[in-house]
Every structure is written in C-alpha cells, then in structure tokens.
Design a protein around this nucleic acid. Structure first.
Lengths: 239, 239
DNA sequence: CAGCTTTATAGTCGTAACGACTATTACTCG
DNA sequence: CGAGTAATAGTCGTTACGACTATAAAGCTG
C-alpha cells in the first residue's frame, strides 16, 4: 500500500456475495436466486450485488440481505465475512472482486421476491449442485466455516429462534455436521458451559409435538466455547 | 451479483496488505515499512500494494511478500487470507478496498530494502503502536487470528525452521499467547497428537546452548489438532 | 383406556485428557 | 568440580467425555 503513488492500477468492480443458511424441516437450506441473463442464465447463484460508492462491504451485504430475504428487520442478524474471491477470470465479462459473507437465519422467512432477483428461493444445501460463477466453491467454504465455528463458538443459537429447546439446538449441530449426537451428553455439555444458554424464567415449556414437553432456553451471553464442543472425529483418521 | 446488468457501479482500487509475523529473540515481530509520502508520511505501515490486472489477491500478496522480505523462495510459505477491509474512508485519497493476508516466517530473514518501500524493518509487535490507515486494526486482527489458530491447527510449526526442538515450538505458543506453559505437559500434548511433529531420524540433537541437548523434530503431516491445544482460560471469566 | 412410541431429563461408569508437580539426566559456564 | 539450566521421565488427582441405562411425560393407536 505504500506504493500508491508509483504504481499504475486498474479499477475493479467490487461485489458482495451472500451465503445465507437456514434450517427448514430439519435440513440445511440455502438462499439462492435464479439468474435471468447470461452468463449462467438459468443457473442458481448466491444473492449479492455491487458495493455502492459510499458503502463498506458489510453495509452492502446487510442491504442485500434485507432486499433478498424481504425481512423487515435484518439488524439483529449475524453477518460474518467469509473470504474474498478475486481470481481474474471468475466472471467472464469483467474483473470482479467479491467479498463473501455468511449469514444464519433462525426460521425460514417465506421465500419472497423482493430485490432485483428474477426468483429467490430456499433450496436444500447440496454440495453437488453447480452454481453460477465460483459460487459453489463459496458456498462450500461457507459450509466448512460454519461447521468449524459450531465447535468453538456459540454460533449455533443463531440458527434458532429467540427461545428454543435443547433438542432444536442439537438439531443444528447434527444437521450442519451430518452426524448424530448422544442426547444426554449433548445436554450435559451445553448446560455445564457457562453462558451458552440460559433457561427462560417463566418455566415455560414447549409442548405440542409428541413426546415429553421440553424446557425453553435462550442464548446466553457467552460467545466462545471453552472447552469446545468437538465434532466426533472422522473414522479413518485417528483422533 | 445477479444485478450486474441493472446497477451502475463504481470502480474501486484493490490492494493487498500483509501482516508478516516472525519470532526474533523470543519476541513477536512484524514486518513494517515506513511511509515516505502523505498521507501518514513517516508512519509505519503494513507492506502491500495494488493487485495487478491479471492477478488474484493471493498472487499479488505472494509477489509483495517476496518483494518486501527479499526472500528468494517464498513459495513454501503459508499465506492466509485474513479479511477484507472496505470502509469508505479508510484511505483519504480514494476508495481503496484492501484484502489482508497473514504470513508466518520461521527465522528473521535480515531486514532488506527490496521492493519499493522507503524502508522496511522488523519491529516488535506492539498493539499500541499507531500505524498508517487502519493498519493497526488489521495487525490486531491478524494477531487474534494467529493466536486462535494455534489452538486447533498445527500452524505453530510455520514459525519454526524445518527442524526444531520442542522448546522452540513451545516458545511460539508462549510468545504469541503471552503466557507460560508447563513444559512437561506441553511436551506430552505435542507428542501424543499423531502427526503434529515427527522425530528427525538420525537421532540428531541440538546442543550448543546451556542445558541438556534437545531432540530435533519436523512438522508432521497433520494439519489440524484434535483435540485442540487450548490456551489457559483467562482469569476473571470462568472456563 | 391400555399400551406403544416418542422425546426430554436424570444419572452412572469407565477412560482419556489435562493441570500441577517431582525427579532425573545431560549439558555449559564459571 | 559444583552451580545453573534446560530436556526428559513419570506420578497423581480432577475434569471432561463417550457409552449407556433409567425414568418421566407427552401423543398416538387401537
């Protein structure tokens, strides 16, 4: 950066891309938009758009998130920078550098049509689905990152509504990691980690489904998990 | 990104900034360059520069790293993307979006003057030192990230020469974290983690200093630490 | 309504991991 | 040759965790 005044430089277009994840019906879903124009017309792509002249990438990402999801209040949502993608040919038309973000939503805010997208929909997360540009790689990176952050942060509550049961919280881990966890052990771990969750005062319980009604919890004030909640080590590689 | 063809967009300058860390004489050092021109003339700044038209940010970062350190072979070094900084006013002259990278060097490759910088030097890491632009924040973010990655990755060996003693490896942790660790326990943890380090075959030992000569090890083929090597929990916040 | 299924919650037991220590070995330095 | 220093070996008690059993409280099914 000290070389400003000597180097010639080329201007780039700067965009943001959003990997917005949620849990619908026990399966991980992603917010995708269908491209109407070439290149990649008809292909699914991550929502996103240009960073405006007076915006930071974070601001632009939050604006796009509101536009694409149609949510009235996006201010409380966690929006985390993932990484920046800058391969010279990632867009065939021009030089585009894209800052990717990850967001996690509690409940499926119904599809929506807002924003400028031809069509925006929640689709099940499928690592094999080819997306426009390098978006499949961005999405895979986002999935990896979220999976890793579940281990040592309290991020999982971001997938849950304000009040949730431990079963719902466990579903977050199981769905994102693609494993099943032992329920009593999960419960013990979460409850003995100070600040991870706190019981809802009114002794409120959630009933309605089958089985014994579950106690309700809220996210606590802790932000990191010490010690972490490790996912079971993969078979084939010793721990 | 689907909005290309409708939105007008503003071109940005894209740069890379490098937080290059090393251990000199048991203290964490950073590679800094002294700015010759306004703004921030005379201030220390992170090395970096513009991304050229046909480069990715990663390529540009590696090029800059070679130029600034004067190292002949930079290809083996770990260069990791940290985060992108895009506040509209981070550079008073123009709109600059900067992709920041972190690199870790084993041994202090002597200062150097290569590249276009007025002066490049290793200075002790000091969170209080004001740097040009938002570079003090970038540097702080890099330090945080490296500290966190030491816990669950084998990154620490990147600070060490190809063959190192367990004492040197422990120094990496102690220096970056700013704590002291129990030597036998550290040793046990490192040696019982498969693939973290492997002994150098020839039963080579490093002598020369005071004390008993230490056995030499190399980095193993593992890349992540399962279970992690947690830093001691801060006092004041219960674990 | 009885009994099955389902889900939440309580608790046990054995082991692995880890923090805090002590002891011993093998060097250099004065 | 001792004193100091750093590496290595090993012990002990506690915590954390995986695997598992048991009980409680709901809905469902006939």
């Amino acid at each position: 950066m000290q070389g400003y005044d000597k180097y010639a430089y080329e201007p780039f277009a700067v965009t943001v891309d959003l990997a917005v994840l949620t849990l619908r019906a026990g399966a991980l879903h992603v917010l995708l938009v269908e491209r109407g124009l070439e290149p990649y017309a008809g292909r699914w792509a991550l929502p996103g758009g240009f960073v405006l002249p007076r915006e930071s990438a974070e601001t632009a990402a939050r604006r796009e998130l509101a536009e694409e999801t149609g949510l009235s209040d996006v201010s409380g949502l966690r929006l985390e920078q993932l990484r920046t993608y800058s391969e010279p040919d990632r867009d065939p038309r021009m030089r585009v550098v894209s800052v990717a973000f990850t967001a996690l939503l509690p409940d499926p805010p119904e599809p929506h049509g807002g924003g400028d997208a031809a069509q925006a929909r929640w689709l099940p997360y499928d690592p094999g689905r080819p997306l426009a540009f390098d978006h499949d790689r961005i999405l895979a990176d986002a999935h990896d990152r979220v999976g890793a952050k579940l281990e040592y942060s309290c991020l999982a509550t971001a997938f849950c509504p304000p009040e949730f049961t431990l079963g719902e919280l466990q579903n977050v881990y199981e769905t994102v990691w693609g494993v099943t966890l032992d329920r009593p052990n999960f419960r013990r771990k979460v409850l003995t980690t100070p600040g991870f969750v706190e019981p809802v005062p009114g002794a409120a319980r959630l009933t309605g489904g089958r089985g014994k009604p579950a106690a309700l919890y809220r996210a606590g004030d802790a932000t990191s998990l010490h010690p972490p909640l490790l996912r079971p080590p993969r078979e084939g590689r010793p721990a």
